[in-house]
Amino acid sequence: MFSCRRVIAVAALAALPVLAPPVMSPVLAQDAPNLKKDMVGQWELATTERSKTCVVTLKGDAAPQGLKLELEPGCAAALPFTKDITSWNIKGLGDIVRLQDAAGQPVIDFTEVESGIFEGLRTNEGVYILQNLAAARSLAKSMDQMIGDWSMVRGNGQAVCGLTLTNTEAGQDNFQVFLKPKCDPAVAAFAPTQWRLDHGQMQLMSSKGETWQFEADDNAQWRRVPDSADPLIMIRGQ
């Protein structure tokens, strides 16, 4: 037998209005044209550590299977797979930048991982980066300015360690760093082996997985963050 409470519940459900199927948000439909417009211009296609680079100019003019592009003459030598690229397009839900062959098939697909930076994977080759050319060259210039000898000092100016930042690749966008002899015990125990620039910070990393982060104090020095009463500051070696 049905209880009175169950009968009331069923009746209440029956009285609910029938809902129409959900309507897809128009935002997705607008993504493709917006992204297509934003992508027109010059881009750097590169390996993650930027040891091999290629300038790609994406255009808004129609081409067979997609839109026109130009590759600088040295692209095929630096990145052999680029010889198959003849056009570009926006695919997926408007969030994939595709560099494609003459048949419209993907040579490599990119998705945005942060503003203005796209990542693409080629099977058995690895990850490639597509980045606005001006931003990529600005980063490269910043990195070039970091290479060389530095002194790590306390807030009172007392030197605690010397180190050399190099442009020798250590994988995953990192580069080798070497400590000089007679470092402060705390720095020697940290023993950084790699460095990188990331989102405006300079990072030192040890083989144990520890990371020290520094932010630019001015054009000449970097201060460890979070700040402290007795800060560590990196200045150019004398």
Rank of each mutant, 00 (worst) to 15 (best):
P231F: 12
V127C: 02
N89Y: 14
A170K: 06
D227C: 01
I129T: 01
L71H: 04
G209L: 07
T57Y: 12
N167R: 04
R154I: 10
K208S: 06
Q176V: 09
N124L: 14
L179Y: 13
V107E: 06
L121A: 01
D227V: 07
D230E: 13
V23A: 07
P231A: 09
A78G: 04
D31L: 04
P185W: 05
S25N: 07
Q158S: 12
Q221E: 12
K83V: 08
F214K: 00
L133N: 04
T82G: 03
L71D: 05
F190L: 05
D144E: 14
T193S: 09
M1H: 10
K59T: 13
A9P: 14
E119L: 01
L45K: 02
A77S: 03
T53E: 13
E70H: 10
M1T: 08
I147T: 09
A11V: 01
I117D: 01
K180P: 13
W222K: 00
D84E: 07
C4N: 04
T82F: 09
I96E: 00
K37G: 13
G60F: 08
W43Q: 00
V187Q: 08
M143I: 05
D95P: 01
K182F: 06
V27W: 15
E49W: 08
Q65E: 11
Q201I: 03
L197T: 00
K91F: 11
S207E: 08
K141N: 12
Q100V: 07
R223H: 15
Q172M: 13
C183S: 12
V187N: 12
I8C: 15
Q100A: 14
R122L: 06
M146R: 01
K68T: 06
R196S: 12
A9S: 12
I90S: 09
N167C: 03
L163T: 03
L93I: 06
R5C: 06
I117F: 05
P73A: 00
L121P: 14
G41C: 03
S207P: 12
G94Y: 14
F214T: 00
K68I: 10
P192N: 03
A46C: 07
L58G: 03
D217C: 08
V177I: 03
F81P: 03
R5P: 05
S142M: 02
D218G: 00
T164L: 09
S3P: 15
F178L: 06
D173G: 07
V56P: 05
K52N: 02
L163N: 07
V160R: 03
Q238G: 14
R137L: 10
L204Q: 11
D84G: 05
A159C: 09
A229W: 13
A189N: 10
L69Q: 02
D227I: 06
D173L: 07
